[in-house]
Structure formats: C-alpha cells, structure tokens
Design a protein around this nucleic acid. Structure first.
Lengths: 220, 220
DNA sequence: AAAAATAATAAGGAAAACCTAACAATATAA
DNA sequence: TTATATTGTTAGGTTTTCCTTATTATTTTT
C-alpha cells in the first residue's frame, strides 16, 4: 500500500467517524472513495495489519491511536497551508482546501514547523477549524451548531464544518455567512429546520442541511 | 506512466543534457535514477510515443520542445518554492533543494503564479539559478565558470550550479563562497586546475571539480 | 575483421490497487 | 421466526507499472 493511499483511507475514516459516528461502515468508505466495497475490505485488512485501524468484519472500522496521530499530523499540515494560501497568497477560503490537499502529503516535519512559526502558530484555518498544535493536541470544542442558538440571540460564526464543497462556501460567502461574521437568528422553522439568519443588513434563510455546517459562539 | 514518473524522467534528462551533453545515454539515466537500463529503454519508448522526447535506439534521448516546456514549468515551481523556503521560512540554501522537490510536483498553476507574485517575481533561486518567467522564458546566460576568470581579477559569485549536493554547499558556505560574495582569484594551478580564491579575508583553495560549479561575473 | 564492450529487447514476474461474481452474515419485515 | 433484503467478505481476475535476467543487436576497440 502506497503512502498516498494509506493517507487517503485514514483521512476518510476520520472524516466519516466525525460525520456518521464510529465505527465507520465499509459501504460509507466505498461510497466516498468511489471504489468497490470489496476493495475497501481488502484495504482495511492491510491497514489493520499495519496497526493503523481497528477492523471488525461486518461491524466496521475505527482509527487506532497510531492512525489518529497520523491523521492529526496531516491535518496540521493541511490547515497550516490553508492559512498560508489564504492569508499570504490571497486565495479565497472557498478554494484553499483542494490546494492544501495537494501540498499536505509532501511537506516534511521541518517545513511544517517552520511554516507554523512563520504564520505565528495560528489556532484555526480559514474555515475556523482548529489546527492541532506541535504535539498534535486539539483544544476543547467550543462552538455549537447554529440550530442550537435561540431565536433572537446574537452570535459570531466560528466555523464552517464543510470545507470541501467550494460551491457551498461560495454560496455562504454571498450570504455574508463567513467565519468571524456577527449574526442573529431571526427564525427557526420547526417543520423542516430552515433557519432565517440576519448577517449584516441582509436577512436570508438557509436549509437545515446547510445550517448543520454553521457553528457559532453566542455573543456575551 | 504516472505523472510523477514522467516528471522524474524528463527532469533527469534535462539535467544530464546540461551535464554530459545531448543526447543522453540510456546508461546515464539508469545510473542516476537507480533503475535498470531495461526499464529506462521501456520508459523512453513510452515518453517518445507521448511526444516528450526524441529517442533514437543505441544513440540516446533528448527532450522535445514539449518535454522542455514541461521541465521549465517544474523548474519555475521548484525555484519559486526554494525562494520561499529560504527567504521566508529561513531554511538554509544548502537544504532547500530537497524540500522544493517534494512541493514542485503538487503545485497548481494558480498557486505557482500567486506565489511568484507574493515573492516579487524573483529572477533567481537561492543558488543563483535563473527562474523561468511566467511564459517559461529564461534570460541569456550571463555568468562564467570561475576557471575562466583571470588571476588577480575581482568578481562576484552569481551562481553555484550544483544545487543537489548539500554537503558541497555546506562546505562552500564555510569558505564564504556563496552567491553574492565578492571574491578574487589568487592563483590557478595549471597542473590540476586547483584554484585559490580570496573571499572576504580568507584565502582558500578548491579543486577543479568544485570550481566547476562556481559561476562568477567579473567586477567592472 | 574479430573481439570486447555497451545497449536494447524479450520474456517473465511481482506488487499495488482495483474489479466482478459468488457466497456469507446480519438486519428487517411479514 | 422464517423469509427477504441488505450489507460485507472472499476468491479469483485484470491492469498498470515497475522489476530482473537472459538474449540479441550494435558500436567500439584492438
């Protein structure tokens, strides 16, 4: 198994653990990686032999500590590059994900740490996601999905949890829903979860699905 | 043939064309790439089918215009990253080559041009080698090997043409022989080509082989 | 021109990363 | 609780891209 392939599998497992819970099903991985379930089964056995994952046939797969450390290392590099691309090269936060994906797998530890230092050891990426520190530790989770915010409450957007879908991010940018923006929940439709949000002077509604990607911290 | 493999072959062919002349022999490529001559033959046929090289069996291989453009594109990305790593991250000019190799293959055109702009469109890398411009054009060659410099003449070091050998570069740094340094040739031994150089206050001798990597521009 | 050195090719193989089809296990619904 | 549907695994095969070894062709040297 090539390093690239290993890294792709591990990162996808981590993402799915967060999205759908652990353990992750073979079929989910097959869907996301667009390969056959049979291929996934095969790969998971090999990753298991390498001690990167815990794999129980017919049940699912989860990262071991070793696998998790590997993913955190990549996440750190990925998000550091995102900060650089956005802040210094002026590439939009909607676009930096893909570019950072290309760079993260080819960054040495030395370059990663010098880069972190150059950037002033940022705590979050342009989407508001936390950057693991030098020891790969993450802070306690602080934000909450916007659906949890009471109507009429003001809050600050801290994070958009879907970094991959650049169309979504462009759409949110158009609505003024970007990390750091001050917003207020005007209305939450109980029927379908649509949420009406005031951002700046404009008032816009977003679907429950889109809202699920928006994390906020209530203003005090 | 994977993109990575193609790029490695093309870059090696270019380097060997400069070092040993064109066309490049199969055996030279096999030696540098540490693969069998049989594999090289096989690969050269495929590169030839793709129109990247001109390959004449038993004679050798040279880059086509298409192959050359490809190499220049990579060279541009490579040297831009070297400038960034050296100037902004503080990685020594002796070390930047390897790191830039990793990054160059995973850099999009967009990132390359934004990076160039960020760096102020530098003309040369930390070793003094020219960076192809946005249209992949290179300036006329201006420097000359130090062996061509007359004894007693002052000159400025413009380039070290061996960027790969970091031990050599560390050695030269210790002697004060770095791009930009003002030097003077004290003596050229006619027997073995050893050259005695004054750099700053110190006077040191270098072998003909090491000297062959040092390019200068005479002071006016 | 023959011998020696070098280069190219052919034959065969290994490993990675997929696949399909058949079978097995588990979950769900009647 | 049995039948049905869903999901997962195994077995065996394919493709790609490299490899080595042995053989054949060409060039160079004597």
């Amino acid at each position: 198994m090539s390093r690239q392939t290993i890294e792709e599998y591990l990162e996808t497992i981590k993402t799915l653990e967060e999205m759908e819970g652990s353990p992750v099903r073979t079929s989910s991985l097959a869907r996301v990686l667009t390969v056959s379930p049979a291929s996934v089964s095969e790969m998971l056995q090999r990753l298991s032999e390498k001690g990167m994952v815990r794999y129980t046939p017919y049940s699912g797969v989860s990262l071991t500590e070793k696998g998790l450390q590997q993913v955190l290392k990549l996440t750190r590099r990925h998000r550091l590059w995102e900060v650089f691309l956005n802040r210094h090269l002026g590439i939009g936060w909607e676009e930096v994900y893909d570019e950072a994906c290309n760079l993260e797998h080819n960054t040495s530890g030395m370059v990663a740490e010098k880069l972190a230092n150059y950037l002033g050891n940022p705590a979050v990426c342009p989407h508001g996601s936390p950057i693991p520190d030098e020891n790969l530790r993450l802070p306690e989770k602080s934000g909450t999905p916007i659906a949890n915010l009471e109507t009429g409450k003001k809050a600050k957007i801290t994070r958009i949890t879907n970094e991959i879908n650049s169309e979504l991010l462009h759409y949110l940018t158009g609505l003024g829903i970007v990390p750091g923006a001050e917003i207020e929940v005007i209305e939450k439709a109980s029927f379908d979860g649509t949420i009406t949000i005031k951002a700046g002077e404009s008032i816009k509604a977003v679907s429950a699905e889109v809202a699920s990607f928006i994390e906020v911290e209530p203003a005090n």
